[in-house]
Amino acid sequence: MIEFKYMCKSTGAQNFLFHSHDAYEIYYFHSGVCTYLISDRVYRLAPGDLIIMHGMTLHRANPDPAVEYCRSLIHFDPRFVRRFFNPPDMVDLLLPFHRLKNYRFRLGGKSRQQEVEWLLADMSRYYTVQQPLAKQRFLLLFLQLLIEIYEEYQMTDHAAESPTEKELIVQRVISYIEKHYAEEISLERIADELFLSKYYLSHTFKDVTGVTIMSYVMNRRINQAKICFLIDPDLSVTEAGYRVGFKHLSHFSRVFKEKVGMTPEQYRKWVRCRAGIDMPL
């Protein structure tokens, strides 16, 4: 129900893929130099930044490989939170996720950062330990973290900071892809639509995101196929591939397995089992 990774560190060239999941996510940036992409938003991170994500939105970290990159991650099922932490007479602690969807908080002041970092450190102590009350202590600390996020949501001016010229170009590219990913799409077509040279467009996109434009298109199509299966587990693999822009089933199956780690049919069966559709009697 809650997956927690504390102070994950990496250096050197890493292949951080665009990905999505139906779990909600809390991401805390400890140190490094990193650009973070969520859908068409580009965030230049600073230590102490905390990101919340609503689920099933493509996102990717693009850290500088020359600097150690350190972050903490929490994935959780919102149904679990509602079950334990949201009685009728209490504040809805998931409201920031519902209202803001995907958002970066810049924690104000060292004391605010320290409070969150102390909570994460304490959570790490109880996450894997096998002793009485460890799980309860972990859940209480997680509840306190959600309260901190809710309070930050109440205090924060939610106006977005001004993006750089390159980030604006990336946002325009992703917005265009969002409207046309199910159609025949090419670098030439995007460049013509945005009145930019192919070289400048592809170089700028790769510089900001760490991936090529056509790689992003494939990730977006596969992400939408996953959403199609989640919405309609009875949807055929052929129809799902066609809806998201693939003209050939073999190509769709190959790219899907490459990105997701299983074939479309295996993913469809997994969704059906999770929903109880194919559970044995």
Results as ranks from 00 to 15, higher is better:
Met155Asp: 15
Cys8Ala: 14
Met90Gln: 14
Ile177Val: 13
Leu249Pro: 02
Ile26Trp: 02
Asp89Ala: 13
Val81Ile: 11
Arg268Ser: 06
Ile174Leu: 12
Leu120Ser: 07
Pro96His: 00
Ala182Val: 02
His30Leu: 08
Glu161Ser: 13
Phe205Gly: 06
Phe252Ala: 03
Tyr216Gln: 00
Ser175Tyr: 08
Asp22Glu: 11
Asp207Val: 05
His30Gln: 06
Ser39Met: 15
Glu161Asn: 10
Thr57Leu: 08
Arg44Ile: 11
Val81Lys: 00
Phe205Pro: 05
Leu107Asp: 05
Ile190Val: 09
Phe85Ile: 08
Thr35Gly: 10
Glu188Val: 12
Pro87His: 07
Asp192Asn: 15
Lys198Glu: 15
Asp40Ser: 13
His59Arg: 08
Val260Asn: 03
Trp118Met: 14
Glu148His: 12
Met90Val: 09
Leu139Ser: 07
Thr156Pro: 03
Glu183Arg: 08
Glu167Ile: 00
Ile74Glu: 02
Leu143Trp: 09
Glu167Val: 02
Ala134Ile: 09
Asp64Leu: 06
Leu140Lys: 09
Lys166Gly: 12
His54Ala: 12
Ile51Arg: 00
His248Ile: 13
Glu239Ile: 11
Leu235Lys: 15
Ile231Phe: 11
Tyr242Pro: 00
Tyr36Arg: 03
Met155Ala: 15
Glu25Lys: 06
Val217Met: 05
Arg83Gln: 10
Gln136Thr: 13
Tyr200Phe: 08
Phe84Glu: 12
Val237Phe: 08
Arg79Asn: 14
Met218Trp: 04
Glu115Gln: 12
Phe256Arg: 00
Glu167Pro: 02
Ile277Pro: 03
Tyr153His: 08
Ser124His: 12
Ser39Trp: 11
Tyr43Pro: 00
Lys226Leu: 04
Asn86Leu: 08
Arg220Thr: 02
Tyr150Arg: 10
Val91Asp: 12
Ile169Asn: 02
Tyr200Asp: 10
Tyr28Ala: 10
Phe105Leu: 01
Leu120Trp: 06
Ser124Ile: 09
Ile177Asn: 02
Asp92Ile: 07
Tyr69Gly: 01
His248Lys: 15
Pro264His: 05
Ala121Met: 13
Leu187Asp: 07
Glu178Ala: 14
Gly48Asp: 09
Trp270Gly: 00
Cys70Val: 13
Arg274Ile: 04
Arg243Leu: 10
Tyr126Trp: 15
Gly261His: 05
Val33Leu: 09
Gln154Cys: 15
Phe76Arg: 09
Leu95Ser: 11
Tyr27Trp: 09
Phe256Ser: 00
His98Ser: 15
His251Glu: 12
Glu148Met: 09
Phe4Ile: 07
Tyr103Asp: 00
Gly261Glu: 04
Tyr36Ala: 03
Tyr176Gly: 01
Val271Cys: 01
Asn223Gln: 10
